[in-house]
Amino acid sequence: MKRILVGIKRVVDANVRIRVKPDGSGIVTDGVKMAINPFDEIALEEALRIKERGAAEEIVVATVGPADCQQQLRTALAMGADRALHVQAEGVIEPLTVARALLKLIEREQPFLVILGKQAIDDDNGQTGQVLAALWNRPQATYASKLELSGEVARVTREVDAGLETIEVDLPAVITTDLRLNEPRYVKLPDIMKAKKKPLDTLTFAALAVEPRQQLKLVRFEPPPQRQKGVRVKDAAELVDALRKKGLL
């Protein structure tokens, strides 16, 4: 079966104002809205479009995390994924551990394409896709803004600092998404009902023979230094004057 595996991470919603806990042990998450990492929504949307074009038969979504993550898997199923895999894990889960678990899922599911987000908007690590591709010994095409499949290869346009780069990779491969790859669809109410009946399997690290490892201790979270609020100028002339005085023009 032609299958695509999509990584889904549960994160604090992009619109939430982040507050650091006073004791520095983390950020405030009580009662905070959670969502699918925006880049993973884009990854899933791309997979769904590939299936709708007839170039894939099954879309499997996977997450590594605590029980709450199943909410995001259900949302992914409502968006149109066929099956979900939940690898149970508590605490800090580093990219190397996530990648190891995803590699085990790849061995089971034999996808021809794996699509992840370019970064999770909580840890902002931006590592998992590349680490997975390295462990799997397969190509990576990161920061994708366009993806074309033909036979055994994928042609990917990447958003790089210089502009747009196009590369070709043999399949199977790992793709990571950038914001302009597509615009994810909205979930419709009837689909949420249907998603409840779709399969969601729960797995453990032990069952996958993955040894979770935390090598980076999170010592302390601090709020960033605040910028001082400045002054208002009344018109362009005053602005130009002020900039000249600072030696900026």
Partner: peptide, 14 residues
């Protein structure tokens, strides 16, 4: 920086 720079995290490798 983490969370889009809304927090600064100190990490220690073991």
């Amino acid at each position: 920086p983490v969370y889009a720079g809304n927090a600064i995290l100190t990490v220690e490798s073991s």
